[in-house]
Computed example of a mutant assay.
Amino acid sequence: MTPDTKEWRSSSTYDYWNNADVDALAWECLRRNQKYQEDFADIVRTPVNAEIKAEEIGNRWGLRFPRSPKPERSRAARLLDTGN
């Protein structure tokens, strides 16, 4: 993930942090962490062991996953499948 640095000098870009809670700050830092990104990609890449991997990675990063790590939408059989 390449950070967007176009607006880094604009204080208005970061105004939302004035009212952010600890969870929001923690998530922002975590989601930018390259090792976390690799761990999350590993969960998505290996759906057979996703439950076990999610627990292992959650313990490593101090997280709880409220539901099973699987895609939010179903996959079509073909790339442009209309479902008919």
Results as ranks from 00 to 15, higher is better:
Pro69Gln: 05
Gly58Lys: 02
Ile43Phe: 03
Lys70Gly: 02
Ile52Val: 15
Asn49Val: 14
Pro47Phe: 03
Pro69Cys: 08
Asp42Gln: 13
Cys29Phe: 11
Arg60Ser: 05
Lys35Trp: 09
Phe65Cys: 00
Asp39Gln: 04
Ser74Arg: 06
Lys70His: 05
Leu30Gly: 02
Arg64Glu: 08
Trp27Ile: 10
Arg60Gly: 01
Glu51Asp: 15
Cys29Met: 13
Gln34Asn: 09
Val48Asn: 10
Pro47Met: 06
Lys70Arg: 11
Thr46Phe: 11
Thr46Ile: 12
Glu72Ala: 13
Arg32Gln: 14
Val44Asn: 11
Gln37Gly: 04
Lys70Met: 05
Lys53Met: 14
Arg75Ile: 03
Ile43Asn: 02
Pro71Gln: 03
Arg60Thr: 09
Lys35Cys: 08
Ala76Thr: 02
Ile52His: 12
Gln37Asp: 04
Val44Arg: 14
Pro47Thr: 06
Ile52Thr: 14
Pro47Lys: 04
Ala26Trp: 09
Asn33Ala: 12
Trp61His: 07
Glu56Ile: 00
Gly58His: 03
Asp42Val: 10
Ala50Thr: 07
Arg32His: 12
Ser74Asp: 06
Ser74Ile: 02
Arg73Asn: 10
Arg67Gln: 08
Ala41Ile: 07
Ser68Cys: 08
Asn33Met: 06
Ala54Phe: 01
Pro69Arg: 06
Cys29Val: 14
Asn49His: 12
Gly62Leu: 03
Glu55Asp: 11
Arg45Pro: 00
Asn59Trp: 07
Val44Ala: 14
Arg64His: 03
Arg73Trp: 05
Ile57Leu: 02
Arg64Gln: 04
Arg32Thr: 10
Glu72Asp: 10
Gly58Gln: 02
Glu51Tyr: 11
Gln34Lys: 14
Leu30Trp: 07
Arg64Val: 08
Ala26Asn: 11
Asp39His: 04
Gln37Lys: 07
Arg75Ala: 12
Ile52Leu: 11
Trp61Cys: 06
Trp27Thr: 07
Glu72Met: 12
Gln37Phe: 07
Ala26Met: 12
Cys29Ile: 15
Lys53Glu: 08
